[in-house]
C-alpha cells in the first residue's frame, strides 16, 4: 500500500462498526486557523495511519464474523477435526456393534453356552452395548468440547 494514498473513501460493507469509525483526519479544534506545521503534521499523520492500518491485524474472530476466506480456513480446520472425532467415535462403537449380528449369526456355540441359565448370546445382546454407548458418548462429548475450547483459544489469541 503506498504511503501517499488517501484512505479508501468507503469501507467495505461488512466491517465492524469500530472500523467504520476510523476517523477522517481530525483538525485542531481550537477555533483557530491550522498552522502550516499543523497541516503538515496532519498529512504526515494521515500517511502514517494508512500505513498502520495496513499493519493493523484483523483478529481471526473478525474474519470469522465477516465470513472471509481467511476465517473459512480456521473454520474448516475445526469442522474437519470435529468430523474426524465423530468418525473416530463411530468406529469405536460401530465396529464391534456392526459385527455383532454376523458374529451371533455364525457362532451358534454362543447359544449353547449358558450363564445363570441364560444363553451367552442373549447376555451379549442385552448387557454390554448400552454402557458402551454411554461411555463413547461421554468421551466424545468431552473431546468435542475440548476441540471447541481449543478453537476458541486459537481464534481469540
Amino acid at each position: 500500500m503506498s504511503a501517499e494514498r488517501e484512505p479508501p473513501p468507503r469501507t467495505p460493507p461488512r466491517r465492524s462498526r469500530r472500523q467504520e469509525l476510523w476517523p477522517p483526519p481530525l483538525r485542531a479544534g481550537r477555533g483557530e486557523r491550522a498552522s502550516r506545521a499543523e497541516l503538515r503534521a496532519g498529512r504526515q499523520e494521515r500517511a502514517t495511519r494508512t500505513e498502520l492500518r495496513a499493519l493493523r491485524l484483523r483478529s481471526p474472530r473478525q474474519e470469522l464474523a465477516d465470513s472471509t476466506a481467511h476465517g473459512e480456513v480456521y473454520l474448516r480446520r475445526l469442522r474437519r477435526a470435529q468430523l474426524q472425532l465423530s468418525l473416530l467415535a463411530l468406529v469405536a462403537f460401530g465396529a464391534v456393534f456392526g459385527v455383532m449380528p454376523v458374529a451371533l449369526y455364525l457362532l451358534p456355540q454362543l447359544h449353547g453356552a449358558h450363564l445363570l441359565g441364560v444363553p451367552v448370546a442373549v447376555w451379549i445382546l442385552i448387557v454390554p452395548m448400552p454402557p458402551v454407548f454411554i461411555a463413547i458418548g461421554w468421551l466424545y462429548a468431552r473431546r468435542a468440547d475440548a476441540l471447541d475450547a481449543a478453537f476458541r483459544e486459537l481464534v481469540e489469541k
Binding site: L85, A95, V102, L139
Partner: peptide
Amino acid sequence: LVGWATAASAIAALRL
C-alpha cells in the same frame, strides 16, 4: 472379521 472389528474399536476407543 471379529478380531479386526474389535481391534478397530479398541484403537478408536483408546484414541478417544
